[in-house]
Simulated scan of single mutants.
Amino acid sequence: MSKGSKPLSGKTIVIAGSRKLDEMSALIEKQGGTAIVRSLQGVTTFKEQEMEQELRLFIANRPEWVIFTTGIGAKALFDAADRLGIKDQFVETVQQSKIAIRGYKTYNFLKTQELAPDIRDSDGTMKGLEDQLESTTFTKEQIWIQLHGEPAPDLVQFLEAKGASSVHTLLPYLNIAPEADTLKQLRQEIQQGEIDAICFTTAVQVRYLFKDAREHGYEEELRSALNQGVLAVSVGKVTSEALTQAGVTRIVAPENERMGAMIVEMAKYFEQ
């Protein structure tokens, strides 16, 4: 890097998220880069009517275990129970269950409800949660899992293999696929070598990008691009895990899982 130039000078950076776009763009531009938004995550919709049935069923079933996997999803369930006038029954049902959680945001939210987990992940990932649950048996026990945006078949299979009588998943939010035009535009930009890095802020963005690549027969080309020409930048461990699972070996991610820290870490990488 020439003296006096900024770390991201001459770099075109894709933001794959759908939140805090102005803030992220400003941070990239402050470091000398050009930010372009290619949102790989459609609007996440809350399933209001379905949640009423689910919450009433949860209270009636009184499962032995409840697993919360995201702070925003856990909060959505408590808020929905409050709106329906059944929060006391909901909280009581959670209290009589054993609680397992994934993620620091989930932990922080449960603290506001004066609830503490019996089991907590080791590193913020689903795999880290499974590792902590490894020594637990769930023989003939009912388990309810709060998810966010998409199913988690590996976790369900893991719990069933450990003897659970039933594993019920709650999806208060549902991810909507990104726009086909957005995917096509990004596909072309990657193939034409027009971008230097992609900032991924959730694992689902990675999955949608690789799903599109499979459908258009350029998955190997995408993997090769991310391992050589286009830098994969991840906001944290869960997103990095999705990239690793997709075969990406060159990933830049901050210790502190925040979007601002991610931009700083990317700038440091290019500066070096």
Score class of each variant (00 low, 15 high):
69 T>C: 10
102 R>N: 06
160 E>K: 14
87 K>V: 05
142 Q>Y: 11
163 G>Y: 07
141 E>G: 01
157 Q>V: 08
120 R>D: 08
60 A>F: 11
99 I>L: 02
140 K>H: 13
163 G>M: 07
137 T>G: 04
129 L>I: 04
100 A>T: 01
162 K>I: 04
104 Y>G: 07
141 E>F: 10
152 A>H: 14
90 F>S: 02
96 Q>S: 12
163 G>K: 12
140 K>L: 14
165 S>F: 13
88 D>G: 02
115 L>N: 02
82 D>L: 04
128 G>L: 10
137 T>M: 11
136 T>Y: 09
158 F>H: 07
96 Q>E: 14
122 S>H: 14
61 N>T: 14
147 L>T: 13
56 R>C: 10
56 R>Q: 11
58 F>H: 13
161 A>E: 15
94 V>G: 02
149 G>Q: 05
147 L>E: 15
136 T>A: 11
162 K>P: 01
59 I>L: 08
142 Q>N: 13
73 G>Q: 06
84 L>N: 09
118 D>L: 04
66 V>W: 06
59 I>T: 06
90 F>C: 00
104 Y>D: 12
148 H>Y: 15
64 E>S: 11
86 I>Y: 01
108 N>V: 08
78 F>S: 03
113 Q>I: 11
84 L>S: 03
133 L>A: 06
151 P>I: 01
85 G>I: 02
142 Q>F: 08
88 D>H: 03
57 L>P: 09
98 K>F: 00
165 S>Y: 12
73 G>M: 07
103 G>L: 06
88 D>Q: 05
141 E>N: 07
96 Q>V: 06
130 E>L: 13
161 A>R: 12
96 Q>D: 07
61 N>P: 04
144 W>P: 08
119 I>A: 04
86 I>A: 02
78 F>A: 02
55 L>P: 15
160 E>A: 09
64 E>I: 09
76 A>Y: 09
76 A>P: 15
93 T>H: 03
116 A>E: 12
159 L>T: 03
135 S>R: 15
137 T>K: 10
165 S>W: 12
162 K>A: 03
156 V>S: 03
117 P>G: 06
66 V>T: 12
101 I>W: 00
86 I>Q: 03
77 L>P: 15
131 D>V: 13
82 D>F: 09
65 W>P: 00
113 Q>M: 12
125 T>P: 05
109 F>C: 07
63 P>M: 08
79 D>W: 04
158 F>S: 06
133 L>P: 01
158 F>E: 05
116 A>P: 05
129 L>T: 05
130 E>V: 09
70 T>H: 14
68 F>L: 09
144 W>N: 04
100 A>L: 02
83 R>W: 04
159 L>P: 00
90 F>R: 02
59 I>H: 08
77 L>M: 12
72 I>W: 10
164 A>W: 11
138 F>V: 00
131 D>P: 11
164 A>E: 04
86 I>H: 00
66 V>K: 06
55 L>R: 03
69 T>F: 08
57 L>V: 13
86 I>V: 08
121 D>N: 06
72 I>P: 15
97 S>L: 00
155 L>E: 04
111 K>I: 13
90 F>H: 01
160 E>S: 11
